[in-house]
Amino acid sequence: MPKAAGDAKLLIQSLTKAYAATPTNLKIIDLYVVFAVATALVQVIYMGIVGSFPFNSFLSGVLSCIGTAVLGVCLRIQVNKDNKEFKDLPPERAFADFVLCNLVLHLVIMNFLG
């Protein structure tokens, strides 16, 4: 056991070290995605405790967070300089896409919210 615990510790340390090399703007996006998923989780827990009524509100709340997270991941893929296929795409263009998609998503969410 202690060996396994030690291995896990080692693994986490190496992962943290490798992640520290990530550019700051990617870290911001990661943080944003985590924030969105965490908010969704809170809502799921709430639903688990008190029930799914009104269901459309619950759905729009959770889907808003999940959609935002997914869009954040997309933004991260496009902004990451290591991804060669998006090399020609400027990060500003990616951000504009991100903003547009978010606005469209939330128009639908608001319509569904009731």
């Binding site: 700051t24 911001i28 943080l31 985590v34 924030f35 965490a38 809170v42 809502q43 827990i45 709430y46």
Partner: peptide
């Protein structure tokens, strides 16, 4: 209480941003 709880990740997000030195 849960309305407050949903604000918690946002606070965490802000703290994280500060830690990153944005």
């Amino acid at each position: 209480a849960f309305t407050g709880l949903t604000l918690l990740p946002f606070i965490g997000f802000l703290i994280g941003l500060m830690r990153l030195g944005v």
